[in-house]
């Protein structure tokens, strides 16, 4: 047997799952798609004493229009809400997501392989908070909000406060991610996603998700750039954004921001690519993605 033995629970409600997590504290782990947790257990890198399987909790698997807005303390109205246990494959194929958060539709096929996306969940990838992953970067770029619940109550956390460093989030061990709210398309706003990997489905050598908002004069009002595969944590690139704010997205400005991003991030070297190569990728991908996002924002793309 590969994994160490554990106590298994498969509750069918969030309340029951929270009760189990509270009872067992640090000994327990939630099991979502298992596509990160089970490999770690097979290697015995993770040996949770108790597994709380979320797969039977139907109320956590949904994709819906965010109509009620702030009624439950969440953002909106507008945009889309995705339940934590929604399979990555379902997000990829969803027409509602294509309409309300097309950046995700563009990005999802880059995550692993179809067999893994059939099991892996949208929320599981967010909680895993791997700096090499696509979903955390997209949530940062899109200014998503995460609904988090514990037995004591719930709170909404913006992506920037949700991700805390390498594989870290602001979730407590006895809390669950419930759903994620993504704002819908806005005027004068364009998004783009780019990544380079050695093969389709491999983790990216470098990649980024961007959201760019222009003002009526065509100057950049807001720029959210989030990288994957090149930083120590899912985070926004602040210096590159600062170069863009208030400027028109001309070739020179875009070049400048791309170089700043390459300097700001400190990619690691590994067996797949040197740090210098990754920096170069950051520069090129940033330039390409910025150009696309600017085109889309001005309605010409």
């Amino acid at each position: 047997m590969k994994p160490a033995s554990f106590e298994y629970h498969a509750p069918d409600s969030v309340e029951e799952a929270l009760g189990l997590l509270t009872e067992h504290g640090w000994d327990a782990k939630a099991l979502a798609g298992g596509q990160s947790l089970i490999p770690a257990m097979n290697f015995r890198l993770a040996r949770p004493a108790v597994l709380v399987d979320l797969n039977l909790i139907d109320e956590l698997a949904f994709i819906r229009r965010n109509e009620n807005g702030g009624g439950d303390g969440g953002p909106g109205p507008g945009g889309v809400r995705i339940g934590a246990m929604t399979r990555q494959r379902a997000v990829e194929k969803s027409e509602l997501v294509a309409e309300l958060a097309p950046l995700l539709t563009e990005m999802m096929p880059h995550i692993a392989h179809p067999q893994i996306r059939n099991r892996g969940t949208f929320g599981g990838s967010a909680v895993h908070a791997d700096p090499a992953s696509e979903i955390p970067a997209a949530l940062l770029a899109l200014d998503a909000s995460c609904r988090v619940r514990g037995v004591e109550g719930e709170r909404w956390v913006r992506a920037e406060e949700f991700f805390l460093g390498l594989f870290g989030t602001s979730l407590e061990p006895d809390e669950l991610l419930i759903e994620i709210a993504l704002p819908g398309p806005r005027e004068l706003t364009g998004c783009a996603f780019r990544e380079i990997s050695r093969r389709q489905g491999d983790y990216a050598l470098a990649g980024l998700a961007i959201r760019l908002t222009l003002d009526v004069k065509g100057r950049i009002q807001e720029a959210r750039l989030a990288y994957l595969g090149v930083g120590g944590a899912p985070a926004l690139a602040a210096s590159a954004a600062a170069v863009l704010i208030g400027e028109k997205p001309t070739a020179t400005v875009v070049e400048d921001a791309a170089r700043t991003a390459a300097g700001e991030l400190e990619p690691m070297e590994d067996m797949h690519a040197s740090a210098a190569y990754r920096s170069r990728l950051v520069e090129i991908l940033t330039r390409e993605a910025l150009a696309t996002a600017a085109e889309r924002a001005s309605g010409s793309g």
Partner: peptide, 8 residues
């Protein structure tokens, strides 16, 4: 299709 090694 899923990975049988990543499902209990």
């Amino acid at each position: 299709p899923v990975r049988a090694c990543l499902v209990f």
